[in-house]
Design a protein around this nucleic acid. Structure first.
Lengths: 343, 343
DNA sequence: TTTTAGCACTCTCAGTGTTCAAGTGCTAAT
DNA sequence: ATTAGCACTTGAACACTGAGAGTGCTAAAA
């Protein structure tokens, strides 16, 4: 990391903050007037030229002011994190209160959380419910549904309930189902979904086990039940974002809407982020996916105990109020963590 | 309904169809050339002027061609329905095939259905899963979840499974829960969710019943379980729609995105439509909601037996290929009906 | 009586030139 | 090392223009 002398750093800050607040390229005059450096525009011009040379700023065209590059934002973000200069008020307790009433229904909880985030931030709110690789089975119940169909109800430690209809060739009695469920519970409860999938495959390869009709049936059911379960992605706030001056260009809007609809891509992105602790920020071109290269992502993980199990966050333009975004995301993640613990 | 003589009608058709295919106001020359009426532009001009006077067409400005009004579209739509002139091929069997694999998971089925619709039509695909007032309870199961919490699993005749966590004050045994579930099943199965809600309220007012501890508890659980259940709304295809020339204006896009995010409003709209049979079309200003006054909606109901239980459809610009939209929506609704029956 | 050719008229759109303000980099003075 | 001054560059805003498309009206033709 390049280090900058105090004065240069402060001017970079000034440019970034000004640009975050007013979406026009910022010129030397603006900085000189708006920030009490006691420096003339000319001096500031020189420094800004240096910053441009180093890659922190960029001129859209010769006679325009300067705009931060992704690298400029990155530098800015690093310093506000270490300075932890974001001393926001908490005007949104009451919004959280509403969410508290939803804690028994995880899906609605998450979808409302994204709405809350987007209301607060004016960017896109995103959330991902716990994924299979961290979701631990608490209990599985099997209920007879139709002649040759059963319903598997999966309860997880994280409070998720998933259900799945499974077609089985022959008829089974509820009594058999209970025995099967008992076996599955004794075998698999406490393990993550991913582990269970692997275990099932391993077990099924053992011949002597497969001879036991009931156990073999149990494993088959189990395999079906855990197939095709994944973390759900919630996104909202498009109309908020369209009010921003950053999205007046039709092409940018198209790009954004494609990014939103391509949930799979975003899930992949969040997957990577869901393993780390605390707030994480990805700025523009740091994103590996093309559609996201002009967007920034601020996320944090919510946890069960010490283990991060999912992600909430914000997607917005690179010209984002990072400090506010960090604050909102951080608080929301902590709030979700608390809610899941209280449940 | 005003009747038009054959020739006038045909010219209106020509204008509408031309405009649907090419998003520019259509002039008399275009009609004369493109459609074999054996009439000169001048004559057609006169007729178009008549059509404008009657309110079927509209000139954006003096020297432009003409564009259909909502009334013009309405007339057009009525006649293609009676003529049933939409003889499309069926190039999308294979798309439906994919959906067939999903029939055991209603939520994914519907969300994929909307994606399919939007892919086929290039408009927004919408779908609403069965609503409480038509959803009939097949079976309720109660499972102990935590010390003071239980999970209610509701199976419906339509193939929906809903689950809900319910906090109860005291502890209950699974045995008690089974007895309660038995009681609830004997009492309520076969009834719609709405009926059950009403019945519960009625029962609870009877004093002697409330004296029975178990029954009273059962009713309370039941009330909780059926509270806050509604038809889910699925929408997709925004990025498809943004490719249309109808949505190049930022304000229109904003309006559209607001309409999409305001799911509640759309649910209200679909609610009304879900009671009728067959394809229904609402054109622009015929919509009662402001955000939708520049959009058209084409929907059809899917059924269980003869009873319509939900809606699938298309939202697009008023300049919509209605014939294609009708075809897609009609087929998709029938397809869903079939899938639900086979389940 | 109905249809059509002809024509003047209207309006939008794309392209052009001009001006204006903002902001720069450089140089010379402080 | 800083700053004032100045020439220079550029995009945005605006008015202007001509071309093109389409109209309505009138008078002639069918």
């Amino acid at each position: 990391m390049i280090t900058l002398d105090e004065r240069t750093r402060k001017i970079l800050h000034a440019v970034v903050e000004n640009y975050i607040n007013f979406p026009d390229p910022v010129g030397s005059r603006t900085v000189a007037k708006g920030y009490p450096f006691g420096l003339s525009p000319a001096t500031i011009r020189n420094i800004m030229a240096d910053l441009e040379e180093m890659g922190f700023l960029l001129q859209p065209h010769t006679s325009a002011g300067r705009v931060p590059t992704d690298m400029g934002y990155r530098f800015y973000v690093e310093s506000i994190v270490t300075e932890s200069s974001f001393l926001h008020k908490e005007p949104f307790r009451e919004l959280y209160k509403r969410l508290e009433t939803l804690k028994d229904n995880i899906d609605i909880l998450f979808s409302e959380t994204t709405r809350t985030i987007s209301k607060l931030s004016h960017y896109l709110g995103i959330a991902m419910s716990p994924k299979p690789d961290v979701t631990t089975l608490n209990k599985i119940e099997l209920l007879k549904y139709k002649a040759d169909k059963i319903a598997a109800i999966l309860f997880t430690d994280e409070g998720l309930i998933k259900n799945k209809i499974i077609s089985i060739g022959a008829e089974v009695t509820q009594k058999d189902l209970n025995r099967i469920a008992g076996y599955l519970n004794s075998e698999f409860s406490g393990h993550t979904f991913d582990e269970i999938r692997q275990k099932v495959i391993k077990e099924m390869s053992k011949e002597k086990i497969m001879c036991d009709r009931l156990i073999s049936k149990a494993l088959k059911i189990c395999q079906e039940a855990f197939y095709f379960l994944y973390g759900d992605l919630f996104i909202s706030g498009l109309s908020e974002v369209l009010e921003l001056p950053d999205f007046t260009d039709l092409n940018k809007i198209k790009e954004l809407s494609r990014a939103i609809e391509d949930k799979h891509t975003i899930i992949t992105l969040l997957d990577k982020l869901s393993e780390c602790n605390g707030v994480q920020i990805i700025i523009g071109s740091e994103n590996s996916m093309d559609e996201m290269k002009k967007l920034s992502v601020v996320v944090s993980t919510y946890k069960e105990g010490d283990r991060p199990i999912g992600v909430v966050g914000i997607i917005g333009p690179t010209r984002m109020n990072y400090s506010k975004a960090i604050y909102i995301v951080d608080n929301t993640a902590k709030f979700i963590t608390k809610m899941l613990a209280e449940r």
